[in-house]
Design a protein around this nucleic acid. Structure first.
Lengths: 355, 355
DNA sequence: CTGAAAGCGCTTACAG
DNA sequence: CTGAAAGCGCTTACAG
C-alpha cells in the first residue's frame, strides 16, 4: 500500500493551522482567531466548540504569522558576555523571574565577550521581533546599536552603558565599591596592595581600578596594578611572578570573580597564607566564596535587583516610547568575611533561605 | 508645523522591507530576494545596486516572513533547569560554541526545574519555529513532549532521557561514576559513608544513589542516605543534625554541586576537618573546588563533550528524519584532589589554558 | 537574467 | 455575534 502525500506538502509532519481548527469546529477562521484572543462577541457555545477543536488538534498559533501582523511577541532578549560567570548567571535568573511575572519570555544569548557575536545576536533578535533587548555589552561603542534603535526596538544597557545611543541604563557604584574595599584593607594596616584583573579596557573595570588607585594614593601607598588587557587565562603565571619577585604585596584587590579565583589559586600554590601574609578582597560575590578557607571578603553587587529593575525599565519603555532616558546607579555592599583580616567567628552564620 | 504620518502606519519607526530595497535599487522584489539569498542568475551590476540599497537602508530580512514561507530558522532551542549551576552554564557554553560552528544560533531558556515553565518554553520554541530543541528536562515524562514530536521538531534529550517519546539522548555513567567514587572512599578505609543530596526523584540522582548503595553494600557497610525529595535549600540544617547526632559518618558522598557546597558549609561551621575527620567526594566539578581547602575530589562529567555532541546529533537529525534513534552514554572521571584523603602535593599544578 | 501572481498563517478593518 | 477580503513581508513556482 502506497501512502499518498498531499502534493503541496513537503513534510509528513505539520502543525495544524487556524483553518484546520475552523474546519473542525465548523466556523470561520475569524471566529477562531477571536476565540483564541479572548475577544468578546463570541457566543459561548461556539467558543466551546472552538476550544475543543484546538485541544483535539493541539493547535498553537504560529508565532511568525502573528508577528507579521504586528503583534508584540511577548519576548525580550537578553545578551550577556558569559553565562559561566556567576554574576551573569544570577542576573539572567533574576531577569527571567521578573519577566515571567509580566508574562514575558526571555530569549537568552551569550556573546562570549565577542563583539561580532554580540552583533549577530542583536541582529537575530531584531529580525525575530523581540519587544525589547537587555544587553550587557562587550563593545558599548558598537555602531550597530544605532541600527537597533532605528528599528524602534527599545534597549536597556545593564552594567555597562552604551555609547552613542540614548538608552536607559543600569549600573553599579563600581568606583565607590572598590574604593571602600581598598580603604578597608588600608584600615587593616596593609601597605602594599596589589590590584589584579582582566579586561582593563572595560568601563566597569576601569572604574574599579580608579577606585583602587585613588584610595591607595590618598593613603600615600604605592599604586600596584597588574591588569591584563584581554580576557582571563594568561594572567595566572604573571601574577605568581609579580607576587613573589616584584611586588611582595601584603594585600590583593581582585577586580572580579575570575581574578579572585586565580589569586587564590596562586596563593595556595605558593603556600602564602591568607589573611596573615596577604589579605584579599574580591569584587563580585559567589556561593563558593563562603566556603573557602578563609571565606572571602567581597564587594557584592545587587545582582538580583539589577536584573529585575532592568526588566521593569524595559517594559516601561515598551509602553511609552517618549519618556526621557533614565540612568540608574545601584550601590554595592562590602561583605566582610575573613580573607581581609577581620576575625572569622562573628560572620559564620547558617543561612537557610525560606522562600 | 504639523507632522503628518502615513495613515497606514502605527509607529513612527519601522524596519525597512524588501519593497523599500527594491524601490531604492530600481528593481523588483524578486531580484532583491535572489540577491540576498545568493541565488545565481542575478547580473553583477544589479547585485551591486541591491547590496548598496541594503546597506543604505540597514535592511535585514524579517524573520517572521521567512519562517512563514517554510524556511529553516537556523536556530536551535536549549532548555536547561538552572543556569546558575556551573554544570549547565558550561553545557550551554559548549552548545553555543558548537552551534555557531554550524552557523546556528541558540535560543537559551531556563526552566527553573519547573515543569510548567519548561512546557511554556517548549511551546514558545515550537511556535517560533526553531529547527530543533535540546532539552535537559525537569519532567521527562511530560506528555507535552509528544506534542512537540508531533510537530516534527526534532529533540535531543541531554542528561536525562525523555520517557514516552522516541528521541536521541545523551547521558552520563551516573551509576558507574558514583560507584567508583564511593569505592575510592572505601579504599581509604572509610566505614560510615553518608550520601547527601536533593531531588531524589530525578533519574540521574537515582542512578547516583544506586551507585552509592551498591558500592557500600558490596563492602558490607551501612547504607546512610540523606537525600531531600525536592530541590535545594532546606537540607542544610537537616544534614548538620545527621552528621553530628545520628550518623557520625567518616565520609560524605555529595550527589551534586549544591550538595557539595552545603556539605562543606556545614563541616566548616561544625569545625569538622576534611579529610582527617570526614572525607568528601562530590559529583560534578567546578572551578571553585580547586581552591577550597582542601581541594575537593569530584566525579567530573564530560560537560563540553555532552553539549557539543548533542548539537551534532540534533543537526544530524534535522537533515535525516528517518534515521534510527541514538542513545549515547559518556563516561565520567574521578578527579582526585585531596578532600578524599589522598595526599595533596602531587596534584597541585598550575594550569594555563592556551586557547 | 527578471518580474507579476499566489500563498505561507494569521489579524485588522469592513460588511453583514 | 460572524465571515469574506485584503495585507503583514517574504518566497516558490510560473511566465517571460
Amino acid at each position: 500500500m502506497i501512502e499518498r502525500m498531499p502534493p503541496s506538502r513537503k513534510d509528513a509532519l505539520k502543525r495544524p493551522t487556524i483553518s484546520d481548527v475552523a474546519r473542525l469546529a465548523g466556523v470561520g477562521t475569524m471566529t477562531v482567531s477571536r476565540a483564541i484572543n479572548g475577544h468578546p462577541y463570541v457566543s459561548e457555545s461556539v467558543a466551546k466548540k472552538v476550544q475543543a477543536a484546538i485541544r483535539k488538534l493541539n493547535y498553537t498559533p504560529n508565532a511568525a504569522a502573528q508577528i507579521l501582523n504586528g503583534r508584540p511577541s511577548a519576548t525580550i532578549g537578553l545578551i550577556v558576555p558569559d553565562l559561566a560567570d556567576p554574576f551573569f548567571a544570577v542576573l539572567t535568573h533574576a531577569v527571567q523571574a521578573t519577566a515571567r511575572q509580566h508574562k514575558y519570555q526571555v530569549w537568552i544569548a551569550a556573546s562570549n565577550s565577542d563583539a561580532a557575536i554580540e552583533k549577530l545576536e542583536l541582529e537575530q533578535m531584531v529580525r525575530r521581533a523581540v519587544d525589547g533587548i537587555l544587553v550587557v555589552s562587550s563593545k558599548p561603542n558598537d555602531t550597530y546599536f544605532k541600527v537597533v534603535t532605528s528599528t524602534g526596538v527599545p534597549m536597556v544597557a545593564i552594567d555597562r552603558p552604551l555609547e552613542g545611543v540614548a538608552t536607559d541604563s543600569i549600573e553599579v557604584e563600581n568606583y565607590k565599591g572598590s574604593r571602600e574595599a581598598v580603604e578597608h584593607l588600608i584600615e587593616h594596616g596593609r601597605k602594599k596592595i596589589l590590584c589584579v584583573g582582566y579586561n582593563a579596557q572595560q568601563s566597569t573595570i576601569k572604574q574599579r581600578m580608579l577606585g583602587y588607585r585613588e584610595a591607595v594614593e590618598a593613603a600615600n601607598l604605592p599604586v600596584l596594578i597588574e591588569v591584563a588587557l584581554g580576557p582571563a587565562d594568561s594572567l595566572s603565571l604573571g601574577l605568581g611572578k609579580s607576587l613573589l619577585k616584584r611586588v611582595k604585596p601584603d594585600a590583593i584587590f581582585a577586580l572580579n570573580n575570575i581574578a579572585t579565583l586565580h589569586s587564590i589559586e596562586i596563593l595556595n600554590e605558593l603556600k602564602i597564607h591568607v589573611p596573615t601574609q596577604i589579605a584579599l578582597i574580591g569584587f563580585d560575590d559567589m556561593d563558593a566564596w563562603r566556603v573557602t578557607n578563609p571565606p572571602i571578603t567581597v564587594v557584592r553587587q545587587p545582582v538580583q535587583e539589577m536584573g529585575s529593575l532592568a526588566v521593569k525599565i524595559l517594559l516601561d519603555r515598551t509602553l511609552s516610547v517618549g519618556k526621557s532616558i533614565t540612568r540608574t546607579i545601584l550601590p554595592t555592599r562590602l561583605i566582610i568575611r575573613s580573607s581581609c583580616g577581620c576575625p572569622p567567628s562573628a560572620h559564620v552564620h547558617l543561612h537557610v533561605r525560606s522562600s
